[in-house]
Amino acid sequence: MYIIEDMTHVMIFVKDYNEALDFYTNKLGFVKVTDVIPTPGWRFLSVAPKGQGTEIILHMPNATIEGEAETQMETELIGKTPALMFKVDDCKKTCDELRSKGVMIIEEPFSAPYGIQALIVDLYGNPLWLIEHPK
């Protein structure tokens, strides 16, 4: 029997590679994992929180590579990615630091049954939850 063993990547659709890379590395503190151009017109770019195995692919729709129909569908998904969740040590301090870098906080830290959480969004409106588990 075959089983799914691990999640290695998630994809977020973006409008611009460089501005997305800047947001995720300089504002959120992620590291660039992969940045290659396998064929002309296509860039494979991924980031991840430091020490994290799962990479976030920052994908810019491209009609030259994918065709018009797929590009239109992907473009419509910019800012509508399902929520990603990230563990943090201190939700309030993390939000304060991110706010000082211009990151939009949609929901300030609040108590939930499983800890403290807050909702931020990336520069396109994709939801990113910050979760502080009870100590």
Rank of each mutant, 00 (worst) to 15 (best):
E5H: 07
E5Y: 09
T8C: 05
V10K: 06
I12T: 07
V14E: 02
Y17V: 05
Y17E: 13
N18S: 11
A20S: 15
L21W: 00
D22K: 15
D22Y: 08
T25N: 07
F30T: 04
K32L: 14
V33G: 01
T39N: 03
T39V: 12
W42M: 14
L45K: 08
S46W: 05
V47L: 13
A48I: 09
P49C: 04
P49M: 08
G51N: 00
Q52K: 05
G53A: 09
T54H: 03
I57G: 04
L58T: 11
M60P: 00
N62C: 11
N62H: 11
A63L: 02
T64P: 00
T64E: 13
I65E: 04
G67C: 04
E68G: 06
Q72R: 13
G79A: 04
A83V: 09
K87C: 09
C91A: 13
C95Q: 04
D96I: 12
L98C: 03
S100H: 02
G102R: 00
V103A: 01
V103L: 07
I105K: 05
I105S: 03
A112K: 15
A112I: 11
P113V: 11
P113L: 07
Q117N: 06
L119Y: 07
V121T: 14
G125P: 00
W129E: 12
W129V: 13
